[in-house]
Design a protein around this nucleic acid. Structure first.
Length: 611
DNA sequence: GAGTTTGAAACT
DNA sequence: CAGTTTCAAACTC
């Protein structure tokens, strides 16, 4: 990557020396990823900007008129139809000085992002996806197929659409000269890889109402180039091609969407029709992604379908606020349904991403499409809730959650429609009790971080044994307000506790003690008696080793012990690192970068068409 | 299932 | 920021 033109370019411009340090790892703010694109008008840019910040408001506050509709006129002059093969060669062309001026602040961060390596970059995308953009989008064939089928049952699609969509993959491959499949096969993390696509997709299709199909093409290619060369690549993305949205009649959009979904799905997964179970490792990620995305897709399409069923208005012209997601008017939230819980859990997992399995769990995903509109609605509410999570993740480091939670999620879905007894039974059987999240709160009303559900960003549901629970869709306002309050106290309160960091995170530890993914607990544990050998220890529970941030005593964490007490006592930083500190690190460059990024945020709305 | 232990979260 | 209290999960019996 460092040999890429982009890197060289960045290296020439920025005074920051390429370093790989703990600071970088912990200080890259996902916002930076959003901020970079937000300044430029490339598809990637706009989408991140819009969906990350604006769509959040859409979900949270549908009444905001500026988000209600844009008339489908978000013109992305720089929205290129890319010749995928040459994408990386025209990275810094055609951006005007204004853009550059705006862009500059976050530039350093983009450089840092490049330096982090692909995995980190991908993970960051994942963060972006998980919280926000995924809300209305889905792209994998496996997720979309069921929905298409559902739509087909409604007479909206022909039965052959799905196959057409798959075929479209090959067609698109030929058209673009880019072999998505081979590229993807090289990707280390298909889940993460896909994220930016989703982000793009969301913004384009849902928020701006632009042509779905064309945008996905663009987005995919942008994503690929971005993934290959880092964020800097997007910077100069030229304005070579007008967004072709106007070129396609809206009457054909529905079909196009179906095709697009399959097309993207095909690009995201090397073989849309393959059985995930045949490929356990990749299936793990795919499974998660699919689960998450299915609801996202469904929601997007539901809106889409609702809209079309009600009027002839263009697709995705309205925000959530005008349809019926946050819009509980049309479809009241179903309080505490199993399905919703599972859906939410899925998104929560999505948000928190993945890490290595602490107990060698194999994540075998089984797809289950959303059962009802209520389920979709609940999902949308969850997205609203989870939107906020992503905004609190200050680490550019991908949020990580252990596979046990993934397992929980899967199990959760499986048991979702079972009786409570069966649920518990299955829960106990699965993953050594690592089933879905369910709480037993008595006094907290499930509105404190004590509550695992609340802390995980999911609503409580039937399997929970909580009392006076407010963590339900019907109390969404309360939930969101409480979350906001908690976040005001600790912006990272809802961020994943375990982050997948760089090796530098464990620089004080022996290499032999590193956990595979070098993941570490964000704040470290404070165990006194458990020896970090029981699940009382959050490090152990997260399947990660203890780190310098831990203040545990007698650490025997099997995933990696904290280094000797010498280190602990000699370090002035032996105390717990506050989220803010850990997020910013000590690098002046990083701090500066973050500051500038934050300053750039207010510019987003000005770049977004309003009415 | 009840009771205990534990450490994070919340509070002062 | 440190100490204390509250809380619920994890654990034990």
């Amino acid at each position: 990557m460092q040999d890429s033109p982009v890197f060289n370019f960045l290296n020439n411009l920025s005074p920051i020396e390429p370093v790989k340090s703990i600071h970088i790892t912990q200080t890259i703010n996902p916002l930076s990823f959003a901020s970079i694109p937000s300044v430029f008008t490339s598809p990637h840019v706009s989408s991140l900007k819009g969906s990350r910040f604006l769509k959040r408001h859409q979900l949270a506050d549908p009444s905001k008129p500026e988000f209600a509709t844009n008339g489908g006129k978000i013109i992305d002059k720089n929205d290129p139809i890319i010749d995928g093969a040459n994408k990386s060669d025209r990275t810094h062309e055609n951006h005007n000085p204004e853009d550059e001026a705006i862009y500059q602040p976050s530039y350093e961060c983009s450089k840092l992002e490049i330096e982090l390596g692909q995995s980190l970059v991908y993970d960051s995308r994942c963060s972006l996806l998980s919280a926000k953009h995924s809300a209305e989008c889905a792209y994998t064939s496996s997720t979309f197929v069921p929905f298409i089928q559902e739509a087909s049952q409604k007479g909206l699609y022909g039965s052959g659409e799905n196959e057409e969509g798959v075929n479209q993959i090959d067609q698109d491959k030929e058209a673009t000269g880019c072999d998505w499949e081979s590229f993807i096969s090289d990707a280390t993390d298909p889940l993460i890889f896909e994220s930016p696509i989703n982000a793009e997709f969301c913004k384009k299709s849902v928020q701006s109402g632009e042509n779905f199909y064309a945008n996905v093409r663009n987005n995919m290619q942008n994503t690929l180039s971005f993934s290959e060369a880092g964020s800097g690549e997007q910077v100069g993305e030229g304005s070579e091609t007008e967004n072709p949205s106007s070129q396609l009649g809206e009457g054909s959009e529905l079909k196009k969407i179906a095709e697009t979904h399959d097309m993207v799905a095909g690009c995201s997964t090397s073989n849309p029709s393959e059985n995930m179970d045949n490929e356990p490792e990749s299936g793990l990620y795919r499974g998660v992604r699919r689960r998450c995305l299915v609801f996202e897709t469904a929601r997007a399409l539901r809106k889409h379908l609702d809209k079309n069923s009600d009027s002839d208005s263009p697709l995705f012209m309205q925000s959530d606020g005008n349809t019926s997601s946050s819009d509980g008017q049309q479809i009241p939230p179903k309080d505490g349904s199993d399905s919703s819980r599972c859906v939410l859990a899925g998104i929560g997992l999505h948000l928190n991403a993945l890490t290595t399995t602490p107990k060698g769990y194999k994540f075998v995903a089984k797809f289950r499409p959303p059962a009802s509109q209520e389920e979709l609605l609940n999902n949308s509410l969850a997205v609203t809730m989870l939107d906020r999570e992503i905004s609190t993740v200050e680490n550019g480091v991908p949020p990580v959650e252990d596979d046990s939670q993934a397992s929980r999620y899967i199990v959760n879905e499986e048991i979702a429609q079972s009786s409570p007894k069966k649920k518990r039974s299955k829960l106990e059987l699965a993953g050594e009790g690592e089933a879905c999240k369910r709480c037993n709160c008595k006094k907290s009303k499930c509105l404190k971080l004590y509550c695992e559900c609340f802390a995980a960003g999911v609503y409580c549901v039937e399997p929970c044994s909580c009392m006076d629970c407010f963590n339900k869709p019907v109390h969404e306002d309360t939930v969101l307000a409480t979350r906001k309050q908690i976040e005001s106290r600790n912006p990272l309160a809802f961020a994943p506790k375990v982050i997948k960091g760089s090796d530098s995170l464990c620089e004080t530890r022996n290499d032999s003690s590193k956990t595979p993914a070098s993941a570490r607990h964000k704040r470290g544990c404070n165990c006194k008696k458990s020896g970090c050998l029981k699940k009382y220890c959050e490090c152990y529970q997260g399947g990660v080793g203890c780190s310098i941030n831990c203040r545990c005593e007698g650490c025997k964490n099997v995933f990696g012990r904290k280094d000797g007490e010498g280190i602990k006592s000699s370090s002035p930083n032996s105390k717990r690192v506050s989220p803010h500190q850990s997020g910013l690190g000590t690098s002046p460059e990083v701090r500066r970068g973050r500051k500038l990024i934050l300053q750039s945020i207010p510019s987003f709305p000005s770049l977004t068409p309003k009415h």
